[in-house]
């Protein structure tokens, strides 16, 4: 009888050890729910009192933290571009506006990077209107060197002002890039587009 109990003892001890290890492994692995951030200690530094621009905010009527500046105000460093999004504005910009940057190695290199990041998805690396997005079904823009503009004239003859106007306001299927490219960045892109017009 005693032998029997001892034998059972060993078996039970082994089984209990097995159960404990399995449970502990399961418990420690349990914390990995990908939809949850997991346990947090002192989360007040993560969810701080100050509002992030993209957070909801009950202090404003529309519930957003990011508010539009009051009408008629101008941010510091704002560059005026008094040419409206009309044919007249476009033609006037063509005559009056000149690029403030000169084509140097550095400014062209900057323009190239900006062009590749913001324009080439549609216009293509060579500006031929054959970017990867176009190959996936976006309507093709005209080639800078061979195409014609819908506002008349050849694309290769587009002036500083016309290109800048188009980047600022967009045209046809192209949207405005004013929110993504600052004025000086737009001018660098214009420099680089002039290079592509010669291809």
């Amino acid at each position: 009888m005693t032998e029997n109990i001892l034998a059972m003892n060993k078996f039970k001890i082994l089984s209990i050890i097995a159960v404990v290890t399995v449970v502990s492994v399961l418990l420690t692995a349990c914390g990995k729910d990908k939809r949850s951030t997991g346990w947090e200690y002192a989360p007040n530094m993560y969810e701080h009192i100050a509002y992030d621009p993209d957070q909801p905010n009950t202090n404003f009527k529309d519930g957003k933290t990011a508010q539009l500046p009051p009408a008629g105000t101008i941010p510091i460093g704002f560059v005026r571009f008094d040419y409206p999004n009309t044919k007249e504005g476009y033609e006037r910009a063509s005559v009056e506006v000149v690029n403030k940057y000169i084509a140097t190695k550095q400014s062209l290199a900057d323009g190239k990077i900006l062009f590749e990041h913001f324009c080439s998805p549609c216009h293509g690396i060579q500006g031929q209107g054959d970017g990867l997005v176009v190959q996936h079904g976006f309507p093709a823009p005209p080639s800078y060197s061979k195409g014609n503009s819908s506002r008349g004239g050849a694309m290769k003859d587009l002036t500083d002002g016309k290109i800048y106007h188009t980047i600022t306001y967009g045209l046809n299927a192209m949207g405005s890039y004013a929110s993504q490219l600052a004025p000086d960045e737009r001018w660098k892109v214009v420099l680089y587009v002039h290079q592509l017009q010669k291809l």
Binding site: T28, R35, S36, G38, W39, E40, Y41, P43
Partner: peptide, 14 residues
């Protein structure tokens, strides 16, 4: 393990 992973959001996929 729990203490090391507290406040660590690695793998978080909401």
């Amino acid at each position: 393990v729990t203490l090391w992973n507290t406040n660590v959001h690695q793998g978080y996929q909401p």
